[in-house]
Write a protein that binds this DNA or RNA. Structure first.
Lengths: 246, 246
DNA sequence: GAGTGGTCTAGACCACTGC
DNA sequence: CAGTGGTCTAGACCACTCG
C-alpha cells in the first residue's frame, strides 16, 4: 500500500491514524507478539509508504495507550502483562501503611457454565453461550484481601482449568496473554461499598455485614472486544484503592 | 531567549520540555488566565526563538495533561473548570441506572481552624497554620449522596465564607479558580469501604453502620503544590464510582 | 480571505544500546 | 561502529472558524 497516493476515504482520517489502524491489526492478528520488538520506524515507513514522522505519530499514540513500549536504542516493543510496570495498571490496591507487599493469587474453583443474561450482556455473548467461571482469592503478605469471581467467554478460554491456574506463576493476565493470546488493553471499573455476605466474610476473615469494596470490572482486548467480566470484594481494613485523577 | 544557541544545561532536557516549563510558568503566574486563548503557535515560536514544531510538541504534552485545550481554527486555550467537559474529571460518580442526573452542592458549614498534624502533612503546611474547613452535601436529583469535609490552606483561601459558597452557582473548583486564581490540575484519591457513623448516616439518609465509600483526595495546583485535602463519604445505594483503567 | 491549529514530508543531528 | 528511537528544523499544504 502506498498510502500517500491513495484516494481519500469517505470518512476522512489523517494518514497517521490509518497507519495506526494497520499496526493495530498486525497486533490483533498476532503478527507481532507480546514482548517482541516490532520493525523499526524506518522499516515501517518503507512498508507503509509514508515518512518516518508519520510512523512516529502513529506509534506515539499507541505508546500513549500502553499498547506499545518504546525503548531508545533498542526498538519498539509490544506491551506485555509480564512487564512489572504493568502490575499496578489493573490492580490499584496498596497497603494503608505505604510500601509494597508480596501478593499471591489463590485459585479456588474453575468451572464451566452457561451465560446468564447479565454475563451475556457484559461479555457481548448470547444467553446460554458457554462461559467459564473462576473463583479465587488474592493475598497480600499471606492474608486474604480480595475475593474475585471471574467470568470468561468459554469460546476463547475453552482449555482453561483449575490446574493451569494453580501451576502458573504470574498474574492472571500474563496467563491469558501467554496461553490464549488474549491481551487486556483497557478496563472499566465500577466501585461500590457493600456489606459482606457470609461466604465472602469467611473467605476474607472479616465480620459478616462489615463494609467491603465491591469492584466490578469489564476488560477489553483489541478492537474494544469485552473478554472478561469480574466482581471483586476488597477488604479495605489494611488496604485502599488508589486512583489518580489527571 | 534563544534556546537553540544556549549552552547545554547540567541535567539535559530537550528543548520542547524547557519550552513546556516556560509555558507552565506563564500559566502559574497568571499571564494567561483560565479560559483565555494563549498566543498562537507562530507567535510563541518567535517569542521563544524555536521552530513551530518544537512549540507544538510542548503544547501537545500540556494538552495531554489537560492544562491546555486546542481548538482547530480558533486557538489554544487555558483549560478551565467551567468547561462542562471538566465536570466528570474530578467527580467519578454516576447513577447505577445510567444516564445523567442534575446535581447540587449544599454548603453546610465553613469555619477557620488551625492545622492538625494530618491536615498539615497533607497540605504541606506547618502544624497550627491557619486552615479553612468546609462541610457540604452533594445532592443528585434532590437526594443527598455525598458528605464532604474539605480542608484548605487559610493563606490561599483566606477570604472564603459560607455565603460565597452558597451564592456561587457552579462547581467548587470553578469558584476556587475564578475567585482565588487557584486551578486544580490533578488529584490523588484513596478509596475504602467504611461503616456510616451517626452524623453521616443522618446526612445521607442511610442506616448507621451501613457501608459507605470513603474517598480521600489531595488536589494539586501548578508545580505539584497540594492545595486541598478532602474526605467524602459516598452513598453507593443508587450510584457508583467509575474508573477507567487505561 | 486571514488566521488558527492539524498533517505530512525530508533531512540533519543527538542519545542510547549492544556488538 | 551500526542501528535504534528522540529531537529539531523548515516548508508545504489541509481543515476549521470567523468576520
Amino acid at each position: 500500500m502506498n498510502a500517500s497516493t491513495q484516494s481519500p476515504p469517505a470518512t476522512f482520517s489523517p494518514l497517521y491514524r490509518q497507519i495506526k489502524t494497520l499496526i493495530l491489526q498486525a497486533l490483533a492478528t498476532g503478527e507481532w507478539k507480546s514482548g517482541e520488538v516490532i520493525p523499526s520506524e524506518g522499516e515501517l515507513a518503507i512498508r507503509f509508504g509514508v515518512s518516518q514522522g508519520t510512523i512516529r505519530k502513529a506509534i506515539d499514540e499507541l505508546a500513549a495507550e500502553n499498547l506499545l513500549l518504546r525503548r531508545q536504542g533498542k526498538g519498539t516493543f509490544v506491551a506485555s502483562h509480564d512487564d512489572p510496570r504493568a502490575f499496578f495498571r489493573f490492580l490499584r490496591l496498596v497497603p494503608l501503611s505505604g510500601g509494597i507487599e508480596p501478593s499471591r493469587s489463590v485459585p479456588l474453583e474453575c468451572w464451566r457454565a452457561k451465560a446468564g443474561p447479565e454475563a451475556a450482556r457484559m461479555l457481548g455473548l448470547n444467553v446460554s453461550d458457554p462461559i467459564i467461571i473462576i473463583r479465587r482469592l488474592l493475598e497480600f503478605s499471606g492474608k486474604p484481601v480480595v475475593a474475585d469471581e471471574i467470568y470468561l467467554s468459554g469460546e476463547i478460554f475453552g482449555a482453561l482449568t483449575l490446574e493451569m491456574l494453580r501451576d502458573y506463576d504470574g498474574s492472571l493476565y500474563s496467563l491469558f496473554e501467554s496461553t490464549f493470546g488474549v491481551r487486556m488493553i483497557r478496563a472499566e471499573e465500577r466501585l461500590r461499598a457493600v456489606p459482606a455476605d457470609r461466604t465472602s466474610a469467611e473467605l476474607l476473615g472479616v465480620a459478616e455485614g462489615s463494609p467491603l469494596l465491591s469492584v466490578e470490572r469489564v476488560s477489553y482486548s483489541y478492537g474494544d472486544r469485552p473478554v472478561e467480566w469480574r466482581r471483586g470484594l476488597y477488604s479495605t481494613e489494611q488496604h485502599c484503592y488508589v486512583n489518580n485523577l489527571g
